[in-house]
Design a protein around this nucleic acid. Sequence first.
DNA 1: CTGAAAGCGCTTACAG
DNA 2: CTGAAAGCGCTTACAG
Lengths: 341, 341
Amino acid sequence: MKPTVHDIAAHAGVSLATVDRVLNDRPGVREVTRVKVEESISALGFVRDVNAANLAKSRSYSFVLILPTGNNSFMEALRAEAMEAAQRAKFERTSIRIVDVRAFDAKSLAAILDGLAEERPDGVALVAVESPVVAAAIDRLAEQGIACVTLVSDLLGSKRVHYAGIDNLAAGRTAASLLGRFLRDRRGSVAVLAGSMLVRDHRERLEGFSAVLNTEFPKLNILPILEGWDEPERAERMVSSALGEHRNILGLYSLGAGNRGLVRAISARSEGEHISVIVHELTNTTREALKSGVIDAVLNQDPGHEIRSAIRVLTAKADNLQIVAAQERIRLDIFLRDNLP
Amino acid sequence: MKPTVHDIAAHAGVSLATVDRVLNDRPGVREVTRVKVEESISALGFVRDVNAANLAKSRSYSFVLILPTGNNSFMEALRAEAMEAAQRAKFERTSIRIVDVRAFDAKSLAAILDGLAEERPDGVALVAVESPVVAAAIDRLAEQGIACVTLVSDLLGSKRVHYAGIDNLAAGRTAASLLGRFLRDRRGSVAVLAGSMLVRDHRERLEGFSAVLNTEFPKLNILPILEGWDEPERAERMVSSALGEHRNILGLYSLGAGNRGLVRAISARSEGEHISVIVHELTNTTREALKSGVIDAVLNQDPGHEIRSAIRVLTAKADNLQIVAAQERIRLDIFLRDNLP
DNA sequence: CTGAAAGCGCTTACAG
DNA sequence: CTGAAAGCGCTTACAG
């Protein structure tokens, strides 16, 4: 039988309360007593039942997820997953509140974070915006012992305890590697559609992409970056005019959003050979384009995994428990037409 | 405040025991009483605290994982993950026993399954072997209410409650799709190295591979399958002689194990242009070959995810709870040199 | 068919 | 600094 606190108490000749004090590192125990109890703990191989402890404490967790608004398909999916998770969490004494913030609005985000100092949730997950005011707000929460996890977009240099998202440098490198292989031995140009070079994710993807393409596939040259602001209409215009202007475009990497416009622009082409296209995030648009052959590959991050992971990590941090690192690593999914889920 | 059984009892004017009977669908409650309690439950929006219930029941889970022996890198990784999971499980009142069985030995596997009828674990996970005796043994356990989950290799037609593994047809299709794109427009042969055509996984991968290659990439023709029995030495010999015999081999798909031999055979070639190579499972060998450029892509299933998923599913089934389907879907990972974990 | 009481493994005031 | 008792939200004999 697994030993319980009663067994420890009996073995050490102390009361339950004292065992509990030692177990939880609470003050007010004489050194000799503490040692005695600790010896019993290791002698009997005691491991605390966390669920029972949480029940006794009436422990419940309260987390806040701060998600950007906007009609971006990916962010919508992230929000839907967050709402499902919130629903399931109720059964495990965990309450999850979803807070909206305007996308890329560092000031508002920081203000929301500061506002949480009063509510004192057990943890916060946020899609970070790269800004010193946000980092400072995260650090203030950290001071108070409120753990912050960055979601999708990281904020290095802040005191966030974990990042639940993909490695964007690796994503860019992977895109280049795939595109280079798809275009094996051909000579020509590659267009890149980004959202904005002000966003770290996009900069990192571009950096990884450029590095691999330039060193490993020197026959392919990257055209000036198209900044589509993640807007379908603008993306369509930019891609269309690029396709018109440069007749030797062999490949296209879309590292941001707005892929509806990109698909329209490519589909509108009446002539020319197949262009190899790699985009990010599996949405209805990209799924259909993958099936129809307009897009060759989709790099994806699983919003469900990101949300579940963020919550698991926050829960673990709240109780100072270990996480299973491999389980929390967010994969870069590569989808072809043939392995769509 | 979240309502508890006490609140339900008070609201319905009955005792805790009766609430419990209704909650757990136990007999011996008059219909009127049952209705009264159920009304209170929905009126107060009661949801049962599963952890508290498990504590009260002194509920503990006992699962058996049946894993094939052999020095296959993938199976070793699976076993290592199982042992880690067993370690972690102790903290959650779950005991996991790992049982060895000779690989591909249907009779022994069935005997082990039958032997479990006495032990009566709460659930069993096994790497299935395609055989009627195994299916029958799984069904006998199912009759007794012992849930079986197939791991890595499925057994259709049996009463297993879940399959924790990849879609092997999709894996084969993906391999063909990648290889076809890597070899864009070229005309030549593709070699396929399998373990054995007697194993369902391998047959399915080949089926998916052939289907896509034949329909979408007609310039590539598949050479007669090399059966390497998952043994490095034999694989090396077969690949070497195939490379010697067929001078127009452009690509190679290894859908089984024994990749150490394959890498040696390819590395030994002194002449000829780059051959595009796609293999299964990320191991030390394939990781290094990916880095050095001998291999172009690795299709992988995450053994850690498979083990954790099997255990989560068994736990859920043991208590008749829902699983989060998306979380339990085992992805087909595609690794290039650029997105290695 | 129904209920009062004890218990699962821990924690928390409170008293000393 | 230490302990006895009650309690977290459920379930389980046992009695009626």
